[in-house]
Protein backbone atom coordinates (compact mmCIF):
# COMPACT_ATOMS: atom_id res chain seq x y z
CA UNK A 1 0.00 0.00 0.00
CA UNK A 2 1.33 3.45 -0.84
CA UNK A 3 1.59 6.00 1.97
CA UNK A 4 -1.42 8.29 2.41
CA UNK A 5 -0.88 11.48 0.46
CA UNK A 6 -1.27 15.13 1.45
CA UNK A 7 -1.89 17.31 -1.59
CA UNK A 8 -1.98 21.10 -1.51
CA UNK A 9 -4.07 22.65 -4.26
CA UNK A 10 -3.39 25.93 -5.98
CA UNK A 11 -6.60 27.45 -7.33
CA UNK A 12 -5.44 29.96 -9.91
CA UNK A 13 -7.33 32.99 -11.11
CA UNK A 14 -5.71 35.64 -13.27
CA UNK A 15 -2.28 34.17 -12.56
CA UNK A 16 -2.61 34.35 -8.76
CA UNK A 17 -3.47 31.71 -6.16
CA UNK A 18 -6.92 32.34 -4.68
CA UNK A 19 -9.14 30.69 -2.12
CA UNK A 20 -12.88 31.09 -1.70
CA UNK A 21 -15.77 29.65 0.25
CA UNK A 22 -18.27 27.44 -1.55
CA UNK A 23 -16.63 28.36 -4.85
CA UNK A 24 -17.30 32.11 -4.41
CA UNK A 25 -15.84 35.08 -2.44
CA UNK A 26 -12.34 34.47 -3.75
CA UNK A 27 -9.40 36.07 -1.97
CA UNK A 28 -5.75 36.37 -2.98
CA UNK A 29 -3.39 33.79 -1.46
CA UNK A 30 -0.12 34.53 -3.17
CA UNK A 31 2.39 33.54 -5.80
CA UNK A 32 2.09 30.05 -7.32
CA UNK A 33 5.81 29.36 -7.73
CA UNK A 34 6.65 30.47 -4.18
CA UNK A 35 3.88 28.33 -2.71
CA UNK A 36 4.84 25.30 -4.83
CA UNK A 37 8.43 25.46 -3.61
CA UNK A 38 7.36 25.90 0.01
CA UNK A 39 4.98 22.96 -0.15
CA UNK A 40 7.53 20.57 -1.64
CA UNK A 41 9.98 21.55 1.13
CA UNK A 42 7.32 20.97 3.80
CA UNK A 43 6.73 17.45 2.49
CA UNK A 44 3.77 17.74 0.12
CA UNK A 45 3.31 14.45 -1.76
CA UNK A 46 1.93 16.07 -4.92
CA UNK A 47 0.72 19.43 -6.11
CA UNK A 48 -2.54 20.18 -7.90
CA UNK A 49 -2.95 23.32 -9.97
CA UNK A 50 -6.45 24.26 -11.09
CA UNK A 51 -7.18 27.22 -13.32
CA UNK A 52 -10.62 27.77 -11.81
CA UNK A 53 -11.80 30.39 -14.24
CA UNK A 54 -10.59 28.70 -17.41
CA UNK A 55 -13.67 26.67 -18.18
CA UNK A 56 -16.44 29.23 -18.04
CA UNK A 57 -14.46 32.08 -19.53
CA UNK A 58 -13.26 29.79 -22.31
CA UNK A 59 -9.70 30.68 -21.46
CA UNK A 60 -6.86 28.26 -21.89
CA UNK A 61 -4.68 27.45 -18.92
CA UNK A 62 -1.96 29.93 -18.16
CA UNK A 63 0.77 28.06 -19.97
CA UNK A 64 3.66 30.15 -18.72
CA UNK A 65 2.72 29.69 -15.09
CA UNK A 66 2.39 25.91 -15.48
CA UNK A 67 5.83 25.81 -17.06
CA UNK A 68 7.33 27.93 -14.31
CA UNK A 69 5.86 25.79 -11.52
CA UNK A 70 6.88 22.55 -13.26
CA UNK A 71 10.38 23.95 -13.64
CA UNK A 72 10.93 24.06 -9.88
CA UNK A 73 8.82 21.11 -8.72
CA UNK A 74 10.28 17.60 -8.21
CA UNK A 75 7.08 15.94 -6.98
CA UNK A 76 4.05 14.94 -9.09
CA UNK A 77 2.21 17.85 -10.65
CA UNK A 78 -1.44 17.64 -11.72
CA UNK A 79 -2.88 20.42 -13.85
CA UNK A 80 -6.50 21.12 -14.72
CA UNK A 81 -8.91 23.80 -15.79
CA UNK A 82 -10.25 24.33 -19.27
CA UNK A 83 -8.91 21.05 -20.66
CA UNK A 84 -11.23 20.22 -23.55
CA UNK A 85 -9.49 17.84 -25.94
CA UNK A 86 -6.54 15.48 -26.39
CA UNK A 87 -4.31 18.28 -27.72
CA UNK A 88 -4.56 19.99 -24.33
CA UNK A 89 -3.02 16.85 -22.79
CA UNK A 90 -0.02 17.02 -25.10
CA UNK A 91 0.37 20.73 -24.43
CA UNK A 92 0.27 20.25 -20.65
CA UNK A 93 2.72 17.32 -20.64
CA UNK A 94 5.07 19.42 -22.77
CA UNK A 95 4.82 22.19 -20.19
CA UNK A 96 5.82 19.75 -17.43
CA UNK A 97 2.54 18.38 -16.03
CA UNK A 98 2.51 14.72 -14.94
CA UNK A 99 -1.24 14.24 -14.73
CA UNK A 100 -4.16 16.11 -16.20
CA UNK A 101 -7.39 16.73 -14.37
CA UNK A 102 -10.68 16.79 -16.28
CA UNK A 103 -13.99 18.20 -15.11
CA UNK A 104 -16.54 19.88 -17.40
CA UNK A 105 -15.08 18.40 -20.60
CA UNK A 106 -15.73 14.78 -19.64
CA UNK A 107 -19.36 15.47 -18.78
CA UNK A 108 -19.75 16.84 -22.29
CA UNK A 109 -17.49 14.24 -23.95
CA UNK A 110 -17.03 11.18 -21.70
CA UNK A 111 -15.05 9.43 -24.47
CA UNK A 112 -12.18 11.86 -23.84
CA UNK A 113 -11.28 9.81 -20.74
CA UNK A 114 -10.85 6.64 -22.78
CA UNK A 115 -8.99 8.41 -25.56
CA UNK A 116 -6.54 10.01 -23.11
CA UNK A 117 -6.06 6.79 -21.12
CA UNK A 118 -5.29 4.87 -24.30
CA UNK A 119 -2.59 7.34 -25.30
CA UNK A 120 -1.13 8.44 -21.98
CA UNK A 121 -2.16 5.65 -19.61
CA UNK A 122 -4.92 5.75 -16.98
CA UNK A 123 -2.51 6.97 -14.30
CA UNK A 124 -2.24 10.34 -16.08
CA UNK A 125 -5.99 10.93 -16.22
CA UNK A 126 -7.62 12.44 -13.12
CA UNK A 127 -11.41 12.79 -13.10
CA UNK A 128 -12.18 15.89 -11.01
CA UNK A 129 -15.77 15.55 -9.85
CA UNK A 130 -17.65 18.29 -8.03
CA UNK A 131 -20.72 17.03 -6.18
CA UNK A 132 -23.33 18.93 -4.22
CA UNK A 133 -26.49 18.05 -2.35
CA UNK A 134 -29.80 18.91 -4.02
CA UNK A 135 -33.12 17.44 -2.83
CA UNK A 136 -31.25 15.01 -0.52
CA UNK A 137 -29.27 13.52 -3.40
CA UNK A 138 -25.76 14.17 -4.68
CA UNK A 139 -25.49 15.66 -8.15
CA UNK A 140 -22.51 16.42 -10.36
CA UNK A 141 -21.86 20.13 -10.95
CA UNK A 142 -19.69 21.67 -13.68
CA UNK A 143 -18.44 25.09 -14.81
CA UNK A 144 -16.75 25.82 -11.48
CA UNK A 145 -19.78 24.64 -9.52
CA UNK A 146 -22.31 26.87 -11.25
CA UNK A 147 -24.22 24.31 -13.27
CA UNK A 148 -26.07 21.21 -12.03
CA UNK A 149 -25.75 18.51 -14.70
CA UNK A 150 -28.57 16.44 -13.19
CA UNK A 151 -26.22 13.43 -13.20
CA UNK A 152 -26.25 11.45 -9.95
CA UNK A 153 -22.89 11.59 -8.13
CA UNK A 154 -22.13 7.91 -7.51
CA UNK A 155 -23.31 6.92 -11.01
CA UNK A 156 -20.86 9.36 -12.55
CA UNK A 157 -17.94 8.16 -10.39
CA UNK A 158 -18.59 4.57 -11.47
CA UNK A 159 -18.82 5.68 -15.09
CA UNK A 160 -15.48 7.54 -15.11
CA UNK A 161 -13.82 4.48 -13.56
CA UNK A 162 -15.28 2.26 -16.30
CA UNK A 163 -14.13 4.71 -18.98
CA UNK A 164 -10.52 4.46 -17.82
CA UNK A 165 -9.81 7.31 -15.41
CA UNK A 166 -6.87 6.60 -13.10
CA UNK A 167 -7.96 8.59 -10.08
CA UNK A 168 -10.96 10.51 -8.76
CA UNK A 169 -10.54 13.95 -7.21
CA UNK A 170 -13.81 14.29 -5.36
CA UNK A 171 -14.79 17.76 -4.22
CA UNK A 172 -17.80 18.04 -1.93
CA UNK A 173 -19.15 21.50 -2.73
CA UNK A 174 -21.48 21.31 0.26
CA UNK A 175 -18.35 21.12 2.43
CA UNK A 176 -15.93 23.30 0.48
CA UNK A 177 -14.60 26.17 2.56
CA UNK A 178 -16.78 25.31 5.57
CA UNK A 179 -13.92 23.76 7.59
CA UNK A 180 -16.37 21.26 9.05
CA UNK A 181 -14.55 18.16 7.78
CA UNK A 182 -14.58 16.08 4.61
CA UNK A 183 -17.82 14.45 3.47
CA UNK A 184 -17.01 11.09 5.06
CA UNK A 185 -20.27 9.41 4.11
CA UNK A 186 -19.89 10.08 0.41
CA UNK A 187 -16.19 9.21 0.36
CA UNK A 188 -16.67 5.93 2.22
CA UNK A 189 -19.39 4.78 -0.16
CA UNK A 190 -17.31 5.91 -3.13
CA UNK A 191 -14.31 3.81 -2.01
CA UNK A 192 -16.59 0.78 -1.79
CA UNK A 193 -17.92 1.42 -5.30
CA UNK A 194 -14.78 2.07 -7.35
CA UNK A 195 -11.33 0.42 -7.34
CA UNK A 196 -9.57 3.72 -8.09
CA UNK A 197 -7.53 5.92 -5.75
CA UNK A 198 -9.73 8.68 -4.34
CA UNK A 199 -8.53 12.16 -3.37
CA UNK A 200 -10.83 13.80 -0.81
CA UNK A 201 -11.41 17.52 -1.25
CA UNK A 202 -13.59 20.12 0.43
CA UNK A 203 -14.10 20.77 4.12
CA UNK A 204 -10.74 20.32 5.86
CA UNK A 205 -10.53 22.56 8.91
CA UNK A 206 -8.15 20.79 11.29
CA UNK A 207 -5.81 17.80 11.55
CA UNK A 208 -8.51 15.43 12.82
CA UNK A 209 -10.41 15.95 9.56
CA UNK A 210 -7.50 14.47 7.59
CA UNK A 211 -7.19 11.57 10.03
CA UNK A 212 -10.86 10.64 9.74
CA UNK A 213 -10.81 10.92 5.93
CA UNK A 214 -8.11 8.21 5.97
CA UNK A 215 -9.41 6.01 8.79
CA UNK A 216 -13.20 6.37 8.51
CA UNK A 217 -13.65 6.97 4.77
CA UNK A 218 -10.58 5.14 3.44
CA UNK A 219 -9.45 8.01 1.21
CA UNK A 220 -6.07 7.55 -0.49
CA UNK A 221 -5.17 11.23 -0.39
CA UNK A 222 -6.47 14.48 1.08
CA UNK A 223 -6.42 17.74 -0.79
CA UNK A 224 -6.78 21.17 0.67
CA UNK A 225 -5.89 24.72 -0.23
CA UNK A 226 -6.75 27.47 2.23
CA UNK A 227 -5.42 25.81 5.38
CA UNK A 228 -1.90 25.64 4.01
CA UNK A 229 -1.84 28.92 2.06
CA UNK A 230 -2.46 31.13 5.03
CA UNK A 231 -0.01 29.30 7.29
CA UNK A 232 -2.62 27.99 9.74
CA UNK A 233 -1.33 24.47 9.32
CA UNK A 234 2.02 23.25 8.03
CA UNK A 235 2.21 20.06 5.98
CA UNK A 236 5.13 18.88 8.15
CA UNK A 237 3.12 19.21 11.39
CA UNK A 238 0.11 17.52 9.78
CA UNK A 239 2.17 14.54 8.61
CA UNK A 240 3.87 14.17 12.00
CA UNK A 241 0.43 14.15 13.62
CA UNK A 242 -0.90 11.53 11.20
CA UNK A 243 2.18 9.37 11.71
CA UNK A 244 1.69 9.49 15.50
CA UNK A 245 -1.88 8.34 14.93
CA UNK A 246 -0.62 5.30 13.05
CA UNK A 247 -1.19 6.48 9.48
CA UNK A 248 1.60 5.67 7.02
CA UNK A 249 2.83 8.96 5.55
CA UNK A 250 6.09 9.86 3.83
CA UNK A 251 8.21 11.84 6.29
Amino acid sequence: MPAKRIIPCLDIKDGRVVKGTNFVNLRDAGDAVELALRYEEEGADELVFLDITASHEKRKILADLVKEVAGVLRIPFTVGGGVSDIRDFELLFNLGADKVSLNSAIVKTPGLITEAARQFGSQAVVAAIDVNLADNSYFVFVKGGRENTGIEGFDWCRRVADLGAGEILLTSMNKDGTRSGYDLGFLKKLKELVPLPVIASGGAGNMEHFLEAFTVAGADACLTAGLFHFGELSITDLKLYLSRKGIEVRL
Binding site: M1, P2, A3, K4, R5, D45, S122, Q123, G166, E167, P195, L196, P197, D220, A221, R250
Partner: peptide, 8 residues
Protein backbone atom coordinates in the same frame (compact mmCIF):
# COMPACT_ATOMS: atom_id res chain seq x y z
CA UNK B 1 -6.63 -0.08 -5.36
CA UNK B 2 -5.56 0.21 -9.01
CA UNK B 3 -3.59 2.15 -10.27
CA UNK B 4 -0.97 1.80 -7.54
CA UNK B 5 -0.57 5.53 -7.10
CA UNK B 6 1.64 7.27 -4.59
CA UNK B 7 4.81 6.94 -2.53
CA UNK B 8 5.82 3.37 -1.69
Amino acid sequence: TVPNMGWC
